[in-house]
Each structure stands twice: as C-alpha cells, then as structure tokens.
Simulated assay, not measured.
Amino acid sequence: MTTLTDTHSSGPEGVATGTAVSARGLNKNYGRGETAVTALQNVDVDFASGRFTAIMGPSGSGKSTLMHCLAGLDTVDAGSITMAGTDLTKLNDAQLTALRRDRIGFIFQAFNLVPTLTAEQNITLPVALANGTVDREWFDFVTTTLGLTDRLTHRPHQLSGGQQQRVAVARALLTRPEVIFADEPTGNLDSRVGAEVLGMLRRAAQEMGQSIIMVTHDPLAASYADRVVLLSDGKLVGDLSNPTPETVLAALAKLGA
C-alpha cells in the first residue's frame, strides 16, 4: 500500500496521461442589454488527468464561473465541456445531478459538512446517497493518510477547522472521482493548516493519480499545483507550469491583480 509523504516538491512524480476535462469555445453571460456581464469569452482549455491545476485571475475574471461550468454546477451559453467522453452541455438536470454525485468530488471553503452526522458518516455520505457500498480498504487508507482515524466518531462541531477540511477532502476522495473541484479550499484556514490541506491535495494528485482543479486567489496556494491557468475578463490569458509564489505573483501583476 502506498504511503504518502509530506514533501512539497516542484513537480509531479509521474507523467499524466489523458485529459480529465476539456472545454472548447465556452461563453457565459449574465444579465441582458446594458447590464449584461460577460463572464467567459471563447475559452479553450484542457486539464490533464492526475494533475493538480489552479485557476487564478483578478476579481471578476471568471475563474469561479469557469470552475462552476466545468463541474456542471452552471450552464454555458455556448461551447462544450467534455469529461471522459461525456459532453456535460448535452446532459439534462437529472443526468448532471447523477454525474456530479458519481464522477465528481467537491471541496468547498465552508467545508459543507452535515452537522448532525459524524465524520465517518460525512465522508461516506456520497456513497450512501448513491445507494452504493463503501470500499472499506480505500476508506481506511484515505482516513489514515489524512490523520482522521481517531476523529471518525466526532461531529463537525467537535473538530477543528483543519480537521473539518480533512473530512471534506476524504469525502471527495472516497468515490475515486474523475475530477475533484476545490473552491478556495484554504480560505477559512490559518496558514499552517492551509499548507497541510494543500499538501494533501498535491499528494492526492501525485500518488493517488487524482485530477484536481482548484480556484484560488492565493499565490502561495497556487504554488502547490502542477500548473496555473490564468484568466482575465473572462479570457484565458496565461498558463504557468511548476509555479512558484514568485512566478504567480509576477503573472498576476501583469494582469493588474
């Protein structure tokens, strides 16, 4: 069984094969007439399987809109989004719900844990909702790796913020989704705990082969990713490999962020 380490290195250990999510010609507008806002303009982008990618840009650049559309949480006005051969833009609401439940993991800034459930019940909730069976060996591996074995009977109010986010990470990993989307996952955490969570996400990509797409405004958080995609005014304007806080800051400075 693989043992995860705490190393924050500059590049992935393996070579990614294939594409986790692909977007072509994405356009998204909010409102009409003089009040219309263009959130995405003809965005073409691929996200490699088994890699950790961060989406960044100035406020209002469209980074959250892009993630929501890629995850099937929002619709586009034009273009296509493909995940493992499935075009999300052609699915109805019921099909999108099933896809999000079965093939996508989510990690949110606010943790989104059910307060009346234990940590273990929160982790296994997606499987329960799908009437599935928990892979206990994988469950034990994930919870041990994330340091949760002595917290599984605790409810969210009995856990620290970092522990709650670890539960959210475990929940996202449990179903081995094709993609995990993380929306400002360290926004409510202090710097030390945030670094721990980011390290876990990086190792999930490097050593579990998990595909992770994260929206963040923090250059330090983005430096844990293998790649940073930059947006400005709804357009794809930059792409950094093996980012560092310094290269991300420099790229954002050019965008006026």
Rank of each mutant, 00 (worst) to 15 (best):
T2D: 06
T2L: 09
D6R: 11
H8I: 14
S10K: 09
P12L: 14
P12G: 12
G14D: 13
V15D: 14
A16C: 14
A16M: 08
T17K: 12
T17W: 01
S22C: 05
A23M: 07
L26Q: 13
N27W: 10
K28V: 15
K28A: 14
R32Q: 15
R32Y: 10
G33R: 04
T35L: 07
V37M: 12
D44H: 15
V45T: 11
A48V: 08
S49G: 04
F52R: 11
F52W: 09
F52T: 05
A54L: 08
M56T: 07
G57R: 08
S59T: 10
K63P: 08
S64I: 05
T65Q: 05
L66C: 15
M67C: 05
C69Q: 12
G72H: 01
D77H: 12
I81R: 11
T82R: 07
A84Y: 12
G85E: 04
L88S: 00
L91Y: 10
N92P: 06
A94F: 05
A94S: 13
L96C: 04
T97Y: 01
A98M: 11
A98K: 13
L99Q: 12
R100Y: 02
I104E: 04
G105R: 00
F108G: 03
F111T: 05
F111N: 00
L113M: 07
T116P: 00
T118R: 07
A119R: 02
E120D: 02
I123F: 03
T124H: 03
T124S: 14
P126Y: 00
P126W: 01
A128P: 02
A130C: 11
G132V: 10
V134F: 12
V134H: 05
D135C: 14
W138N: 12
D140S: 14
D140T: 15
V142Y: 11
V142P: 11
V142M: 03
T144C: 14
T144F: 10
L146D: 04
D150I: 00
R151A: 10
R155P: 03
P156Q: 12
G162S: 03
Q163P: 04
R166N: 02
V169I: 07
V169R: 01
A170D: 01
R171S: 08
P177K: 06
P177F: 09
P177R: 04
D183Y: 04
G187Y: 08
N188D: 15
R192Q: 14
R192T: 13
V193F: 02
G194M: 06
G199C: 13
M200L: 15
L201F: 01
A204Y: 08
Q206G: 05
E207R: 14
M208V: 00
M208F: 04
S211Y: 06
M214C: 06
H217T: 13
D218S: 11
D218A: 08
P219N: 09
L220Y: 01
A221V: 13
A222V: 02
Y224N: 00
A225N: 07
L231A: 11
S232G: 05
D233W: 02
D233H: 09
D239C: 06
L240H: 10
S241G: 02
S241M: 08
N242S: 15
P245W: 04
T247W: 03
L249W: 01
A250E: 13
A253C: 06
L255W: 10
G256F: 07
